[in-house]
């Protein structure tokens, strides 16, 4: 087991209301997992607590020593003083350079390498940002709407590539699309309002790999399960 959150209780600094109350969740196996829930319920906050970016909560998070947990989101930017290609090369450890080339091809970034970040489309920005995180040493990568502006076909291809290239890593994919998390995620943590108990319900996803056929009825059942849980 990589990660277990026990009885997490948290309120924002200077905030009155609780965001989480005795929240429990876990990520037991490597793979592509989802974090789903309505807007404002605290998905990003929980992700940042898991990644160690927010402290001051009550409860306990258990993870292996030296586990690297990274949080990435779609609002991040690359510095504007150099091209995207230069930046990616600079933040890539030497041992990961072959992976960088693979990811550039898989994420269709070749045409952006000579451009500055500000010149890219929103989808290209998301892909460039995600690429640099995938090149780092990590055990868990949280992708907070990291592919929000990427078209559906490319998104599907990127997720398939990630699953194929990083089978031993943990991913926590935050999305508002119930169809997306149902299709691609192995386990889906459905985060609910703080007044509901338990605050997180775990649902099994379809965990689609590549272009494998998907039983429409089974997928719809999963989607219904998630919607009811939320």
């Amino acid at each position: 087991m990589l990660l277990q959150c026990r009885n997490i209780t948290y309120r924002y600094p200077h905030g009155e209301a609780l965001v989480f109350n005795q929240l429990n969740c876990r990520l037991a196996d490597p793979g592509f997992h989802g974090l789903f829930g309505p807007s404002g319920v605290g998905k990003s906050t929980l992700a940042r607590i898991i990644a160690g970016e927010i402290i001051g909560f009550a409860g306990e998070i258990t993870r292996p020593d030296n586990a690297v947990m990274l949080y990435s989101c779609n609002t991040e930017r690359l510095p504007g003083w150099s091209s995207v290609g230069d930046h990616l090369a600079k933040v890539t450890p030497a041992s990961q350079l072959p992976l960088l080339r693979e990811l550039i091809t898989a994420f269709d970034l070749n045409s952006c390498l000579d451009s500055r970040f500000s010149q890219l489309s929103l989808g290209q920005k998301n892909r460039a940002n995600l690429t640099r995180y995938l090149l780092q040493d990590f055990d868990l990568l949280i992708m907070d709407e990291s592919l929000a502006n990427v078209d559906e076909a490319t998104r599907k291809q990127i997720i398939a590539t990630i699953k194929k290239m990083f089978p031993d890593k943990y991913f926590l994919y935050i999305s508002h699309s119930v169809a997306e998390v149902s299709t691609f995620c192995a386990r889906i943590l459905v985060l609910r309002d703080v007044l509901k108990s338990p605050q997180i319900i775990e649902v099994a996803g379809r965990d689609q790999h590549g272009d494998t056929a998907m039983d429409r009825a089974v997928l719809e059942r999963t989607m219904l399960e998630i919607v009811h849980a939320a």
């Binding site: 990435s72 991040e76 930017r77 933040v91």
Partner: peptide, 25 residues
């Protein structure tokens, strides 16, 4: 934050880089 976050969480942030990012922006 939108630029510095990556460097902070990956342990790459140095004061020179921090100053460069903030001055550039």
């Amino acid at each position: 934050a939108s630029i510095e976050h990556f460097y902070v969480v990956t342990g790459r942030m140095r004061w020179q880089l921090e100053v460069k990012i903030r001055a550039f922006e």
